[in-house]
Simulated assay, not measured.
Amino acid sequence: MTDYSIYLTTAATAAGALVASVATYMQSRLTRLRVGTLTTRIEQISRSSLGAVICDYVDIGTLQTLAAQYSVELNPEEIKQTSSGKRVRGVEFGAHGAKASTNHEEQQGMEFLYRVPSDPHRLTERVIDSINRVEDMRTDLARLPQIGVSEISELVKSKATITTDELIDNLIAVAKREQFESAGSRSEFVLIDALWQVSEVDGGINTRLSLAELSTDSDQLTMPGTVSLHLDIPQGNTASAQELVTAQGRQRLRVDAQIRATVFGNAAYFDNRTSALVLTPIAVFNRVGHVRIKN
């Protein structure tokens, strides 16, 4: 029996009045719960369509390493004017006959010096684009799983022993736990645009961003309390954090704040004890500017 079957049997028992026919119906919905192994390829991120990347936190050393490994496109960062000359020997003719002469010819040119972008905001965007061109990146970790919410609500809305909200919350937690565990075992690159809760951990040494809600294009749901996804970054007032947390980050990453941000990093591990997926952040950013509507 699968973990889902065990859970649904337990849910049916808790509801009391859910009979075998209801359990059979719910079992038919299991395929809609299996979202843990799905990945989606994101469209190439473009500043012209989504606004400018402004980082709250950025690990510039890791970005530069990834830029080399994933062949980030280089731009001419500096242009130098060059000149070269050469000596040309010849013969001059005059009233007193021919005599040898030496002339100088000078050639002008331009020299282009190509470098990886040193600006961390531009480099973040370039690295994400380059990785996305060659491999899949997890973008679904903050998405609500499709579990047939309306059908389950209809089945249990009149049962006093379990509420619809409780059942839905538990079903979503089961689906996300499976998804997070899968991501943690693969150490995948992740890109998560979501709402985050900011808090302090480790006695104030680190700032923690915890996924605050799951969403679809039209619906949002508070993150279930029995499963979590989070990342820790150095506190902004420590010496090491000064090189990692930007001026914008020191304003936005305030304890107890909820911020909208995109996290780029990798899945470090899944903690079975706390049912938490822990991320290693590479960059935390938001996009500033107007969205351009493409014709």
Score class of each variant (00 low, 15 high):
T82M: 11
D56R: 07
S28T: 13
A241F: 04
K159W: 09
Q69H: 09
A212I: 03
L191W: 06
V190C: 12
I42S: 11
N266E: 11
T274F: 11
V19P: 05
I293C: 09
Q248S: 15
L123A: 02
L214R: 00
A261T: 03
E125H: 05
I152R: 02
L209K: 03
Q197M: 06
E181Y: 01
T207Y: 01
L195D: 10
N170P: 03
E213C: 03
D256W: 10
S210Q: 13
N132Q: 04
G51I: 07
Q27R: 05
L155T: 02
E125I: 01
L231T: 10
R41V: 12
G203F: 09
S83W: 14
V288Y: 12
Q64P: 03
L8T: 01
T207H: 02
R41Y: 06
T40P: 02
D193Q: 05
A261E: 05
V291T: 14
P120R: 00
L18P: 00
T24V: 08
R133D: 11
V245T: 14
E166T: 07
S215N: 03
K159N: 14
I293L: 15
A17G: 08
Q44M: 08
A160Y: 04
E135P: 00
T24G: 13
A194F: 00
N132R: 01
Q69T: 11
E92N: 11
N206F: 10
M1T: 06
G85W: 07
T216G: 10
D140R: 09
